[in-house]
Amino acid sequence: MYRVLLVDDEPNILNALRRCLASIDVGQLDGEALKVEAFTSPERALERSEEQEFDLVISDYRMPGMDGVEFLSAMMELQPVVPRVICSGFADRDAIIAAVNEVQLARFIGKPWADEDLAAAVVSLLQPGRARPRAARGASRPPVSFEEASAHVTLVEQDDDGAIVLRSDDAE
């Protein structure tokens, strides 16, 4: 099962995102179900993240109390490897740049979004068929860095573009 965390101060956005994610065919996710948890409060989402690991987090940028970058920074502390996405209608270029740089965003999705683009982004970020970082560590174990896990990497693959593809332990 893939767990996705949604945070937006607008409940209608959360419902629309849920519907969009519900349209993803489980066949695209290796038959794994998608479980969505949605919060209108970033603080509540962080509380939940202390007890539950997620495979993907999608957050709004402008929220009362805590903005998306602040939320995702805190999320990075809790769950460093979870891919982070901001979905926002905020048009300020500087804010977007700051978001990308400060919390190493996996994607910035503008509002309004196209459902198929969002679904495709979610599928690609969940990386079905690849090793799932969450699966690599036990619930109580601290996250294992790539170097620790792959101190003696010998298997080097190149993709179609010639880029080196690094795979974590159980990838083949």
């Binding site: 209608g89 905020f90 503008g110 509002k111 309004p112 979004w113």
Partner: peptide, 25 residues
Amino acid sequence: LAAGVAHEINNPIGYVNSNLSTLQR
């Protein structure tokens, strides 16, 4: 104000647009 207003308009347009796709499905 434009940035704030754009955000405020993009939010509802965002979910209405997405909901229409859902409705089509």
